[in-house]
């Protein structure tokens, strides 16, 4: 299955990845060949098969509603690229 340049650009935007202009043909080719590989799945009829999300078909365990975490802001923000007054900072978002 062949993807074209605009598909790759659209995917890269959805995934928020900046790709160099000159890399797009390479990605297009790589992604197309990967899709050819995965499309081998389409040959099998799986209409009656329940999808398997977990190998054990296990069910969710529940946690008691207790506060177990204390304020750890100083340590957790010490690794932030930009934080001030206790807030993480990003370029101004216009809504």
């Amino acid at each position: 299955m062949a993807l074209d340049r605009s598909d790759v650009e659209k995917i890269a935007h959805l995934a928020r990845l900046q790709i160099d202009e000159q890399e797009i043909p390479q990605y297009t080719e790589n992604l197309s060949s990967i899709l050819d590989l995965v499309n081998q799945m389409q040959a099998v009829d799986t209409s009656d098969i329940e999808p398997m999300a977990n190998s054990h078909d296990a069910v969710q365990r529940l946690r008691a509603d207790e506060v177990t975490e204390q304020n750890n802001r100083e340590k957790l923000q010490s690794i932030a690229p930009a934080a001030e007054a206790g807030l993480f900072q990003v370029p101004k978002v216009i809504e």
Partner: peptide, 15 residues
């Protein structure tokens, strides 16, 4: 929460 008025040119994030 995004706080838009805390810093000039920046948005502050409180999680």
């Amino acid at each position: 929460k995004s706080l838009h008025d805390e810093f000039p040119g920046m948005t502050g994030i409180d999680l």
